[in-house]
Amino acid sequence: MYRNLKVVPRVVFGRGCFDQLDGILEPQRTGSGIMVFILDDFFEGKPLEKRLPLRDGDLFLRMNVDDEPKTKGIDALCEQIRQFCGNGRLPDGVIGIGGGSVLDTAKAVSLMLTNPGEAHEYQGWDLIQFPAIYHVGIPTLAGTGAEVSRTAVLTGPVRKLGLNSDHTVFDQVILDPDLLEGVQKNIPEQWFWTGMDCYIHNVEALCGTFVNEYARAFGEQSQVLCREVFLDHHPESDEKLMMASYFGGMSIAYSQVGACHALSYGLSYVLGLHHGIANSIVFDYLEDIYPEGVKEFRAMAERNNITIPRNLTSGLSEAQMEKMVEVSTGMVPLWENCLGKEWQEKMPKERMRKLFNKM
């Protein structure tokens, strides 16, 4: 059967469109009237924080993203929100404003406010039982595709894996290129790592066994935009990268990522690396699987004066190495997309271990 794909039902794009947020939220204030705003604490004291359309009774949370979101953290946030709302009430909406970690947190919180148990119990595919509360994604970094994906990636007690479900998808996305202003200049490495997540999404989708013309159309256009941003330094790079991220997320929504993401989940689980940099480290060693993609990736790194970190796994214990392999092996749909149903014959654990040893 063909997948009946769930996509973000409402999207607004354009410079300055963030200012429409209050009007977008107004019709949703039909229950408790409470909106939960989760903002990357990078913006503490900055103009964006002052532009939030907070109303009396809303809950404003600053989120530190030094570490990627964990299942325990999601559980704690949900408890904090429930106590704030009181009397068994729930907020009318959750709004995430930031990079991929903040967007994934907003998605996960909106799910776990309506589903029983703890977040780690829902790490996997289509385990969510009940629809989330209304949730809005507003990216201030571009590349992860979190604004359009059906997953909220979390690190749990035994693995790093997303809450993958149709209910995870945002109800509304606001894509304002003004929110990316200064990222390339002020935090160039973060800008690059996040953008490469998008580029790698496309390579894995376009080279995968799951690819179809729907996924191909989005992935190919996203690659065109990535090249204009990271090789040509187009003057409208913010707009182009924001749309590349959106298209890249749409591409994998109807296909899947592959070997790089599977291995990066293991690497980042053990080393605590952020998703974009973990992907970049891994991808640099996959030229036998993605030869053209790795070649172009290296050209992008050179063009932007980025040095890929090396020798990160040299001092790991046997237990840590085994954990990386275990986490990566669990990414079955990713391996099947990359190598087909016989992926375990083509990517045995020993081959994974050799790849990790190179990193």
Rank of each mutant, 00 (worst) to 15 (best):
A142G: 12
A146T: 15
H120P: 05
Q123Y: 06
G145R: 02
G124M: 08
A119K: 01
A106M: 02
S149Q: 14
Q123S: 07
V102H: 00
L113A: 05
A146M: 05
G117N: 12
L111P: 00
Q123P: 02
T144F: 06
V136A: 10
V136S: 11
F130I: 09
G124W: 07
L103R: 00
P116V: 11
L113N: 01
W125S: 08
R150V: 09
Q123M: 14
A142F: 07
P131C: 13
A108C: 10
W125P: 00
A108D: 03
S101C: 10
A146V: 08
S149T: 15
K107S: 04
Q129D: 13
G137S: 14
P139G: 09
V102G: 01
T114G: 08
T114W: 05
A146H: 09
A132E: 02
V136M: 12
E118F: 15
Q129Y: 14
R150I: 11
S110F: 03
A108F: 00
G100W: 00
Y134L: 09
F130W: 09
I138F: 10
S110D: 04
D126E: 14
V102D: 00
A146Y: 01
A119M: 08
F130E: 15
A152I: 12
G124V: 05
Y134F: 15
L127D: 08
S110V: 02
G145L: 03
L113M: 14
P131D: 10
L127N: 12
A119N: 02
A152E: 00
A132S: 15
T105M: 13
Q123H: 11
I133E: 08
E118K: 15
V102Y: 01
I128Q: 02
T151S: 15
A152C: 13
S149P: 07
V109A: 08
P116L: 13
G143T: 06
G143A: 07
A142L: 07
T140Q: 11
V102A: 05
A152V: 11
S110A: 15
A142E: 08
I133H: 06
G137H: 04
L141P: 00
S110K: 02
I138A: 09
H135T: 11
V136L: 08
S110G: 07
P116A: 15
V136I: 12
E147R: 09
R150A: 13
G143E: 01
H120N: 12
